[in-house]
């Protein structure tokens, strides 16, 4: 039986839950493709992660725990994946389009001369080919594409394919494989890593609360030593008005380009054409007018809520629920109401 390879992404010895979405997508494709789903697990703790992958539907696993693979590095990971693909000719190779997933599959597809599409939203087998739907032009259009030839590669948009429910009794056939590169053959050396403190990753977040230019309308007076008064007000607003709501919801904090460019919040929070493209279950846009370039980054969110003073703001055209009002008056009340209803 042919195989669908799914790369299971891990960080510091633990699988990233988005990987189970990729297994879910593989399992949905498997019957039409006449394939089984093989988890490819590299790095620290790969054996245990493979057992977890069994619970999410993988029926076999290729495991490599070589020391060169402890931190994700493109060269040793791609060399190994490419060798496995070339030896075993899987029906397809899949992963979630995270930073690492994008690097790994792009490199390995180049090694194998295979076709690749990124940020795939829908996937289907058509005879020997695969058909995909994906966004292009910064999410302003979709395209339908075809992958043909041996072992096509697919990078899935996160949060677009459901994971299969976990079955703790499931097991799989594991096979250990050898790394391809020695440390001496690897040109990149990781010197240090600083984990992002207490931040929820925008890409993984089920809920995102975002602030825009309207954050500057904070009615609180800036202290005399605040430097730029507008920036202080907006930063203070992100910290004391947006963040408490995000905390109650277990949400990540996002921002529009206008807010980032004005210095209200670091770039890591930017949602949009030159920031992160996100598709959470719930996106709450506060004081964001909804420029096309921002829409491009969030319009595929399942439910969009807009809170804005300007009833004519374009963001209301995307929103399922809207409140026309001052975010600094509305959000604290929403936060309190949620605390009561959610019992927090």
């Amino acid at each position: 039986m042919s195989a669908i390879f799914v790369w299971i992404e891990s960080h510091e010895g633990a699988a990233l839950p988005t990987s189970w979405e990729a297994l879910g997508a593989g399992l949905r494709l498997a019957p039409a493709a006449g394939s089984e789903v093989v988890a490819c697990v590299f790095g620290a703790n790969a054996g245990e992660i493979a057992q977890e992958a069994a619970g999410y539907g993988a029926t076999s696993a290729l495991i490599c725990e070589d020391e060169t693979l402890t931190d994700f590095r493109l060269e040793p990971y791609a060399a190994l994946l490419s060798q496995l693909v070339q030896e075993r000719q899987p029906r397809a190779v899949m992963a979630v389009a995270s930073s690492r997933g994008r690097e790994l599959l792009a490199a390995s597809a180049a090694d194998c001369g295979s076709g690749l599409f990124t940020e795939v939203l829908e996937l289907a087998a058509d005879g020997d080919d695969l058909h995909v739907i994906r966004p292009v032009y910064a999410g302003k259009l979709w395209m339908e594409g075809k992958l043909s030839g041996p072992s096509p590669f697919v990078l899935l948009r996160g949060r677009s394919f459901p994971a299969q429910p976990f079955d703790s009794s499931a097991s799989l056939t594991a096979e250990r494989v050898e790394a391809v590169l020695d440390e001496a053959e690897i040109a990149t050396k990781v010197e240090s890593f600083t984990a992002a403190q207490g931040r929820i990753n925008l890409g993984d977040a089920a809920i995102i609360v975002s602030g825009g230019r309207g954050m500057a309308n904070n009615p609180e007076a800036a202290p005399a030593d605040a430097g730029d008064e507008t920036i202080w007000k907006a930063q203070h607003g992100f910290e004391h008005t947006i963040r408490p709501l995000a905390k109650v919801l277990g949400a990540a904090v996002g921002a529009s380009r206008a807010a980032v460019d004005a210095g209200y919040i670091p770039y890591a929070h930017q949602v949009g054409q030159t920031g992160r493209v996100v598709s959470p279950d719930l996106y709450i846009a506060c004081g964001i007018s909804g420029a096309i370039q921002h829409q491009a980054g969030m319009r595929s969110s399942k439910i969009i809520v807009a809170i804005n003073k300007d009833a004519e703001a374009p963001i209301f055209k995307l929103a399922k629920y809207g409140i026309v009002g001052d975010l600094y008056e509305v959000l604290p009340v929403v936060t309190e109401t949620l605390k009561q209803k959610l019992g927090k």
Partner: peptide, 29 residues
């Protein structure tokens, strides 16, 4: 090319009907 574009499409949707929540701020919340 093993990967080819078959067609471009406009985004689906335009079917979002927005409900603007009315009342006092407490009622809206």
């Amino acid at each position: 090319s093993p990967a080819e574009v078959l067609e471009y499409r406009d985004l689906p949707g335009g079917d979002v009907s927005t409900e603007i929540l009315a009342g006092s701020i407490a009622e809206q919340a």
